[in-house]
Amino acid sequence: MRQVWEVLRKDLLIEWRGRSRSTGVFFFAMILLLLFSFALGPDSQVLRQHAGAYMWLSLLLSSTLALSQSFRIEVESDALTVLRLLPVSPVSLYYGKAAANTLVLLLLGVASGPIVIAVFDVTLHAPIGHLLLLLLLGCAGLAAPGTLYAGITCRAKGQEILLPVLLFPLIVPAMLASVKATTLMMNGDPMGQGRSWFILLLCFDIIYWSISGLLFAKVIEE
């Protein structure tokens, strides 16, 4: 756990120091939200209905930038070589990086919340804590396979193309559950379906985090 914490701390410190990069990702997410709202038109009923879907879509597209960035820093400086020689288990390295990526995406999700509310004319029908928990689970579902695939593609040519091509099909179930649960929170949940989507998302998170952690050792080796 100590090693996971040290890797997490390192990644968050680097993220904080290089916050101009994160700011760029945030503005990219904001622009996507605005474009989606323009595409839907001025009908506030339609905007409200699709707010959850477009919020997650903008997070998903922005996440590929944030995820690939987290490994590009390691590879460009060759720090990954140093890390591989340190007594840090690949599992700790993976969970540290995945946790850092989850927090970065969560921050991005929280920061885009007010924009979603303003642009898509959303009224929350659930406590804010539930939405934050859903955001955390959704971001964890994105970050777990995203960190693994960013590790796979970081040394490949055309990383920017490869990462979404590999990642997007894999996270369809988690995205579907996140979108459904968010939409129910934003538009009301008279049939009480939100809980089922929540549990489904949690199950996929557990699967992603377990399998990706096991596979990561193979990924960072030659």
Binding site: V7, L13, D78
Partner: peptide
């Protein structure tokens, strides 16, 4: 290993670099 690309993080200070790699070993 001291590799030609050195393996340092651009955004960390000298002390933070030493602490980061040191804490992991």
């Amino acid at each position: 290993l001291l590799s030609p690309r050195l393996g340092l993080y651009e955004d960390l200070t000298a002390a933070e670099s030493l602490l980061t790699f040191g804490r992991l070993s």
